[in-house]
């Protein structure tokens, strides 16, 4: 009986410590999450700006490239099958 109570007590202490550990871990992960988020947003802003048309236009200007004045004409193939036999 006493042993059981002691076991329970030990378990309780263990559980309390485990909670503390988890709280620390959560805090650490939370910090990491925020940092990754900050990194993600910083990089995303950069890529978003890079892909904007005016940025691209400026980048390729020296190569003599510029946006098309006229729309692209897309030619799509349609398959026709014929046999002689």
């Amino acid at each position: 009986m006493i042993l059981f109570v002691i076991a329970l007590l030990l378990y309780m202490i263990r559980a309390a410590h485990r909670t503390d550990e988890l709280v620390m871990k959560i805090a650490k992960l939370k910090k990491q999450e925020n940092e990754l988020r900050a990194e993600y947003i910083a990089l995303r802003s950069k890529t978003m700006r890079l892909k904007m048309e005016t940025t691209v236009m400026e980048a390729v200007k020296d190569h003599g490239l510029h946006p098309a004045e006229k729309p692209a004409k897309i030619i799509r193939e349609e398959l026709v099958k014929q046999k002689d036999e």
Partner: peptide, 18 residues
């Protein structure tokens, strides 16, 4: 206008004549 492309279809033959 320049980014609205037009699509035209052409026929591509696959002919099998022995």
């Amino acid at each position: 206008y320049a980014t609205t492309s037009t699509v035209s279809k052409v026929k591509k033959g696959e002919y099998t004549y022995k």
